[in-house]
């Protein structure tokens, strides 16, 4: 019989110490919407669950230095209700809001979505496109890493023993810039992304794309930036030719698998479609801000 212990530390140091002490079978509880499913299915038998939601900074959203700091355990619903964040980073917010049902949104956190390290995590493509970073705390203090550095393989992260993600930081929003996220699922809700595409772009004063980042989910072992896809639309006004190049580049960036949720062929094609469509939405939003 597994003996599970539960701790809800109230400081980062205390949490890190508990995680170290708990050893290999210690698990961080953030929103819990993945952890409890794994517990229930018997895929995970932790000796210790460390609930980090009471660590200062883990929950809440604040503006700082022109950007945003999101407590990494903040539930999706709270993120969706933050008007200023939604205005600045609509793509990030719509990605977070696509994680599961309303009920899941009441609990699910960005930290959990990233640290579950699923290649299909909805928040990851938008955050990577946005150049978001994670504030990671642990036994050796605080460090900051780009979101794309967290997941290194399906189910595996780069976090060291005792480390957990405390905050997500979004940079200041440049003028004439916007983002968007789209995913493809068989139903209209409640599914895991078969493909996800996040696009973040900045226009120059003439409406030409000066900077663009495209990140793709569920088409490789980790969510990853597709630099060629971003490059395909830089210097354009997202005309048909640019969209076709984007579609090509997005497809070329794919290394998907076939599984119960989608085939290699389908995932690859849809990556192109969604990259185009997300780019069009982001472009429209950015123009609206010009």
């Amino acid at each position: 019989m597994s003996q599970i212990a539960y701790l809800a530390p109230t400081s980062a140091d205390e949490a890190a110490a508990a995680l170290i002490k708990g050893g290999a079978t210690a698990r961080v509880l953030s929103g819990g919407t993945d952890l409890l499913v794994q517990l229930r299915a018997g895929r995970l038998a932790p000796g210790l669950i460390v609930d980090v939601k009471r660590v200062p900074g883990a929950i809440g959203i604040r503006q700082e230095d022109g950007g945003f700091v999101i407590g990494a355990s903040t539930p999706g619903m709270t993120i969706g209700e933050h008007a200023a964040l939604e205005k600045a980073w609509p793509g990030v917010v719509e990605a977070v809001m696509l994680i599961g049902s309303t009920q899941i949104q009441g609990r699910a956190s960005i930290a959990g979505n990233l640290c579950n390290a699923s290649p299909a995590a909805d928040s990851a493509p938008a955050l990577i496109a946005a150049r978001a970073t994670c504030v990671i705390v642990g036994p050796s203090g605080r460090r900051e890493a780009p979101v794309e550095a967290i997941g290194i393989a399906p189910g595996r992260t780069s976090l060291a023993k005792g480390e957990f993600v405390l905050e997500i930081r979004l940079p200041p929003r440049a003028a004439r810039s916007a983002d968007a996220y789209l995913r493809s699922i068989p139903r209209t809700e409640m599914d895991i992304a078969v493909v996800g595409a996040g696009v973040n772009l900045t226009l120059d004063a003439d409406g030409v794309i000066a900077d663009a980042r495209v990140a793709l989910g569920a088409v490789g072992p980790t969510v990853a930036l597709a630099p060629d896809a971003g490059a395909a639309i830089i210097g354009t006004r997202l005309d048909e030719a640019a969209l076709a190049r984007l579609d090509d580049a997005a497809r070329s960036a794919c290394q998907p698998i076939s599984d119960k949720r989608g085939t290699v062929d389908f995932r690859t094609k849809i990556a192109g479609v969604l990259a185009r469509r997300a780019a069009a939405i982001a472009y429209g939003r950015a123009r609206g801000r010009a």
């Binding site: 509880l29 819990g32 919407t33 409890l36 619903m77 009920q103 009441g106 609990r107």
Partner: peptide, 10 residues
């Protein structure tokens, strides 16, 4: 005040 699934909360 938040709607949740009680099966996913300890």
């Amino acid at each position: 005040g938040r709607l949740i699934c009680s099966c996913l909360m300890l």
